[in-house]
Design a protein around this nucleic acid. Structure first.
Lengths: 347, 347
DNA sequence: CCCGGTTGTGGGAGCGCTCCCAAGACGGGG
DNA sequence: CCCCGTCTTGGGAGCGCTCCCACAACCGGG
């Protein structure tokens, strides 16, 4: 690899001048610039990012942290899509993304220190963590620029309207005539999970249906967790279940099928996420769509704003709307749903 | 952040000595070492990785490259799991993993240059690419240490026994009495896809069933691709289909269901991958299991060996065995399958 | 015609580390 | 007792870049 020095010599100028043209400084005469550019081209020169980092203190490296609690969920398509959005945003700004999995509790501190406490990455995106997660706490304590995905305390975040989405899902069920509606939640220490539960609750109560804690099961966002929660719920004979992630809904559908229960004839199901999985399930899942890729994208954008000191407190957080995607797991096809909807409008 | 210099001053030794104890050089007296260690502890010193990199030329950074052709597949769980394995291996060796998506053809060269041509990362893992992929070609041309996932030309690779797996799947179908067996493949420019097709073909011919090209559809590893391929295959009335990825199998099942065809009664399906999806489908998918996480893990291990000059040509590539996971998409439950199998053994 | 203000350029120091080399301390064999 | 090898330590150069400062050339206004 050629160095600045060599380019300078070839162009007959000083190192400084070459540096100026590379970094687009204004005060370089047109023909010097041309000479330098020619030399760069000829030598195939590329600035050495490490050397540059050492001098500037900027590494142009961001991290995505997957907290330990989420590690087993990593194969969930949610994270892959989130990651894709995050990488896209990084690339757009010349940043690179390093992926950190906090999977081994013993090495957690070491990994954290190596990555975040010595300025190796400029900032971090934390994929969905509860407020008491050690990584979140450490980030907050160390004042390291970070953006969370999912509502968070003390750390700016990007999220969707979980409350609204849950209300939407529950109201859809209510509208279709279901009254005895259970729900299977994610881990309740996550704030966005609490938000979804609140939306479910308020939707019921708005219709005068009392909130019944017995109808709430915690499924931990995993397929098996959901199946366990379901087995407690089923004896209570719910007419419908609002399952707060598509992955969990997949587990629910499987159990239901194995028990000979038909969806939606015997029991209706709504999911949350609209992951690619949703349309593949049998029956195709009615679910709440959240813009996952956009979430990842905006998390990085927000982080970059933060690093540039652009984000004032006023607009630290970003919230996206959600929409209900009606398929067939609740007993109406999309078309029927539309018709009943326009009928109501027409009245 | 404290620097080497400050630690040295506090411990009353020179920078060199501190550097020695940090890097575990042998020739440091016990009590000097203790003093230095104490100073490090007191100041909370951590070596600055960038400065170290500049001096050593080693960045301890590896990249995982997702070629453009695979970008739309990224949400496939295959990649998430692969990535997880890769990150785990990296962490074990103190390396970090940067994720590079070649999604924008216009920025492809720039991304490649920034990441790989200036020594920013020490090496790369390329997720499944055809031999003529520009990224593979560039890597080969530049002589950059790289390991491919999936058989590759001119680049060491990790892979599974695709041929054997395909034979296994096809023979399973044959054994159950199916004779008119179609297949839906991935993109045929990938070598491992060709291997699977060869396995399918040879399994048929070993039973005296001629290979019929009309029964082969290219599905491109996507759900919609598989559905398109299926629509051409269906008029030929196959009794069974070997679908060469679980994601594609999901699409096939969906189409079949929408056309009122039952699986396995009307048509049997085998998949490939054993992704988490497989057991969630209806019916649960019989499929060929490959150790995806291990593939990612070993890709990084192999790359690291390469970087350390450990891998001689003899053992450049790594191959893993696969196994058939029998569920219910082929018309026998696992138990029945076992029984019929042991009956045969008993004869 | 002189002088303050721009504009273009070069040189040096420094980012925090590694690693080579030299030098001092020490010890044992001849 | 001397010499040479080994162990321990310090100092300097250098990795490839940025950025501050200095300086020269040049401009136009008074």
């Amino acid at each position: 690899m050629a160095t600045l020095e060599e380019v300078a010599k070839l162009a007959g100028v000083s190192r400084s001048t070459v540096s100026r043209v590379i970094n687009g400084h204004p005060n370089v005469s047109a023909d010097t610039k041309a000479r330098v550019l020619a030399a760069i081209e000829k030598l195939g020169y590329r600035p050495h990012p490490i050397a540059r980092s050492l001098a500037t203190k900027r590494t142009e490296l961001l991290a995505v942290l997957i907290p330990e609690s989420l590690n087993k969920l990593f194969s969930d398509q949610f994270f892959a899509i989130l990651l894709q959005g995050a990488v896209q945003a990084c690339n757009l700004h010349g940043y690179q993304l390093v992926l950190a999995l906090f999977d081994d509790p013993r090495r957690q501190e070491e990994l954290y220190a190596n990555l975040l406490q010595n300025g190796y990455v400029e900032g971090a995106v934390v994929a969905s963590a509860p407020p008491d997660d050690p990584v979140i706490q450490a980030l907050r304590a160390d004042g390291i620029p970070a953006v969370a995905v999912g509502r968070q305390l003390g750390v700016p975040y990007v999220d969707v309207d979980n409350y609204g989405g849950a209300r939407l899902a529950t109201e859809h069920l209510l509208q279709l005539g279901y009254r005895r509606i259970a729900t299977i939640t994610g881990p309740l220490n996550h704030l966005h999970v609490q938000d979804r539960l609140a939306g479910y609750r308020d939707a019921l109560e708005a219709r005068g249906i009392p909130y019944d804690e017995a109808l709430v099961g915690e499924g931990g966002f995993t397929e098996v967790g959901a199946m366990a929660a379901l087995s407690k719920l089923l004896p209570l004979r719910p007419e419908a279940i609002f399952v707060q992630s598509d992955t969990m809904a997949a587990g629910v559908l499987r159990t239901l099928r194995s028990q000979g229960l038909r969806v939606p004839e015997d029991i209706a199901i709504v999911g949350f996420d609209d992951s690619p999985l949703a349309s593949l399930l049998d029956p195709p899942l009615t679910t709440v769509r959240q813009p996952i890729r956009l979430l990842g994208f905006m998390a990085v954008e927000l982080l970059l704003d933060l690093l540039n000191g652009q984000a004032d407190q006023a607009q630290r957080n970003v919230l996206f709307p959600v929409e209900l995607v009606v398929r067939s797991s609740c007993g109406v096809t999309r078309r029927e749903f539309r018709e009943s909807y326009s009928n109501k409008e027409g009245r």
